[in-house]
Amino acid sequence: MINLKESLILEEKLKNYIKNGYLDINSFDNPDDEAACTLTELSYLNKGLCEEYSRLIIESEVVGDDYLKSRCLDHLLDLNKKYALKYIEEQVNNMSIPILSTAMSGLVQYSNSKFRKKYHLN
């Protein structure tokens, strides 16, 4: 029961972050860092909610922190590889460096595709 209560609290914080740009109005910490930590906590308590909020943040045009979005992509690679690989395929031309770095690591780790061409010199 404690996990459910904690999950709901973390979910409310993330809703507030997406809507208002902060988790707690009385906090003086960096809201993007707080959101990343909250997602990590949520990943231990409720993987489904972590996936849901990672998707919401990474797809959001309001949330502009690329490092947070790269953390979201990292969570998604662990929680829903199919979605994450599709997202990478669709967004690769528009990714910032932090997101692209996470994407490349994920592709190397999770994709069955070959990324290097082998050239044979005759």
Rank of each mutant, 00 (worst) to 15 (best):
R71G: 01
D74S: 05
L100A: 04
N93G: 15
K13T: 03
E52D: 14
E34C: 10
S54M: 04
R55D: 12
E34G: 10
K5E: 15
Y53F: 11
I58M: 01
K69W: 00
P98Q: 05
E89K: 15
N122E: 15
E61F: 10
E12M: 15
F28N: 13
Y67E: 06
D29A: 07
E12S: 12
K82W: 06
S60I: 02
V62L: 09
L10Y: 11
L8A: 08
L56M: 10
N94V: 02
N112E: 05
K118Q: 07
E52N: 15
N80G: 05
C50M: 06
N46G: 08
D65C: 02
S70G: 02
R71T: 01
I2Y: 12
R55M: 10
N93Y: 12
K13G: 03
N112R: 13
L8Q: 15
K114S: 05
A103R: 01
Y17E: 05
L39M: 03
G21E: 01
S105Y: 12
E61L: 11
A84E: 02
E34K: 11
Y67R: 09
Y110A: 07
E61H: 10
I97M: 00
N80V: 08
I99L: 02
I18F: 04
Y67F: 14
A35G: 02
R71K: 04
P98T: 07
D33M: 03
D65N: 06
N20E: 04
F115H: 04
T102L: 02
N26V: 12
N122L: 14
L77V: 00
M104K: 07
I25N: 02
M95L: 09
D74G: 01
E59D: 03
I97V: 01
K86V: 11
T38C: 12
A35W: 00
D33Y: 13
K69H: 04
I2F: 12
N94A: 07
E59S: 01
E11I: 13
L10H: 12
L4W: 09
V108S: 12
V62C: 02
L14M: 06
M95A: 10
N30D: 12
N80E: 14
E90C: 10
N80K: 13
S105W: 11
A36Q: 04
H75A: 05
L107Q: 02
I9S: 11
K5G: 08
L76G: 06
S111E: 08
S111D: 09
M95V: 05
G106C: 00
P31E: 00
E34R: 06
L73D: 00
S113M: 15
L8E: 14
K82Y: 11
L56H: 09
E90F: 13
R116A: 15
K19W: 00
V62M: 10
V63M: 02
